[in-house]
């Protein structure tokens, strides 16, 4: 197991020290849950909590250790919206594309994020600060269009306000 985690190219875990810590953590997670009901899901959940995402070399290790094929593991992972195989930003931006927000200009928010921050749904800014997810509803359609940054929700967002909102995050 050491070899594969240490040999892999893992974003966010470049140094030997980081890799060693990741290796120990992974070992702990897998050993602690390999016999649990729904082990693959639980283990991926805890791993994502630690890494921020699910790096491919780590998935190869989980597949090997749990003796479940890569395709089957990936099938589970890709079924749940919760799991991600790309690193997320320090702050996750969510823009709603549900019906209400869409009608009220949700797309314009996306356009402006793309133009001003080169940020597309599923992507991450070069400095790793923000990543963008498109969601179907944030549960406050009366305030549309809605955008969330981390735990903060912004209502009736106009494209012109976006720069100001984001510069507030350090």
């Amino acid at each position: 197991m050491t070899t594969s985690v240490l040999a892999g190219d893992i974003k966010g875990f470049e140094s030997k020290d980081q890799k060693l810590k990741l290796y120990n953590k992974l070992q702990e997670i897998i050993d602690g849950h390999r016999n649990a009901v729904g082990a693959p899901i639980r283990i991926m959940q805890l791993t994502q909590e630690y890494c921020g995402y699910l790096p491919l070399p780590v998935l190869e290790v989980i597949s090997k250790e749990l003796d479940i094929s890569f395709s089957q593991l990936y099938s589970i992972l890709s079924f749940y919206h919760f799991f991600t195989t790309v690193p997320k930003g320090k702050y996750v931006i969510q823009v709603c594309k549900g019906t209400a927000c869409y009608v009220k200009g949700g797309q314009k928010i996306l356009d402006s994020l793309h133009k001003e921050f080169n940020l597309a749904p599923g992507g991450i800014t070069a400095d790793g600060k923000f990543s963008l997810d498109m969601v179907r509803c944030l549960g406050c359609c009366g305030l549309s269009p809605v955008m969330a940054v981390g735990d903060d929700v912004y209502r009736k967002v106009k494209p012109g306000q976006i720069k100001d909102i984001l510069t507030g995050y350090k």
Binding site: L59, S71, Q72, Y74, S75, S78
Partner: peptide
């Protein structure tokens, strides 16, 4: 691939209208 050949190279990947069959990732 899984039941007869036990290779398990492919499975359903993604969901909804992006659902396909493939090796994943």
């Amino acid at each position: 691939c899984s039941g007869i050949q036990t290779v398990e190279a492919i499975d359903f990947v993604n969901r909804g209208d992006t659902l396909i069959v493939g090796p994943g990732a």
